[in-house]
Design a protein around this nucleic acid. Structure first.
Ligand SMILES: [Mn+2]
Ligand SMILES: [Mn+2]
Ligand SMILES: [Zn+2]
Ligand SMILES: [Zn+2]
Lengths: 142, 142
DNA sequence: ATAGATTTTGATTACCATTATCATTAATAT
DNA sequence: ATATTAATGATAATGGTAATCAAAATCTAT
């Protein structure tokens, strides 16, 4: 099932309305590069849909998170960032403190060890954050 | 070398002054329970030293981070939290979303795998965050 | 010890991302 | 088509953090 349908069904279930803005924002989010902030998306949309307000972009991104289409990330710069959620994959991030480059990595062994840590503490994990901050290869050598 | 000395030498090196407030705040920080927010420490200090202002507590905690006595953590509730830095140990955190309990864990194997991930991407790690969010055993069973 | 230079303090304000407000507009059900 | 309910977008409120600034404290050089 595609995300447009997931979103409209989610809205229907909650008694919310499928508006043109919501459809436009979803489309823009999915076609934007990942890890975009609310402002990134707002500015991008502004070119083609200058009537859409910042608040609507913000609220719609929150809805996308709520229905599982997007996930929210925080990389320490004070701006929430959003990326499409992939239910069949999971990745964490390397964040360059110099140029802001974000590299994604998958480390199944770490995920397994995480589960063991939680089990040791009888802790039920709902989600996690694992971010490595430092310098990307380009910034480290210049 | 004890932390009082580390702090005063740091202040001296930077041309900053060793004030009574800074000494008091350092002592209170070290004797407070870990993961305290600026407000936690401010309210605690208020009882014994009601003249010390919030801004001074905030600025001093930043200085403690700068000189390596404290590290700053963010567990998603919008309040920066501080804990003593232990140069010979490192731990990450389990955070209960229900009661706020913070459990510390050490996982050397994860740390090693982290280094391998970074090496794969020619990335130079400066620091990292690894937090598992969910329910502690008490909250999971009630 | 004293005076002058520099920094700190503490009250207050500014900042800024996020969230709430509310009158107007739009979507849905009948 | 109309009534009902929610959404929109401009704007204001919120709240943790950080900046401002006059008064006070510290430090240095005598
Ligand atoms: Mn990502
Ligand atoms: Mn800790
Ligand atoms: Zn870089
Ligand atoms: Zn709990």
């Amino acid at each position: 099932m595609d995300q447009t349908k997931i979103f409209s069904e989610f809205l229907g279930r909650k008694g919310l309305k499928t508006t043109s803005q919501r459809k436009i924002i979803l489309r823009a989010f999915l076609s934007s590069q990942s890890h975009c902030s609310t402002e990134d998306l707002y500015l991008k949309l502004r070119k083609s849909h200058p009537k859409i307000g910042y608040a609507t972009v913000h609220r719609t991104l929150k809805l996308l998170v709520e229905c599982g289409i997007a996930i929210e990330q925080h990389f320490g710069d004070g701006h929430a960032r959003f990326e499409p959620f992939q239910f069949d994959r999971h990745h964490d991030h390397l964040v360059c403190k110099d140029c802001g480059l974000i590299i994604e990595f998958e480390a199944p062994q770490i995920e397994e060890l995480q589960k063991m840590v939680a089990a040791t503490h009888e802790f039920m994990i709902k989600n996690h954050r694992h971010e490595l901050y430092g310098l990307c290869s380009r910034c480290a050598t210049k």
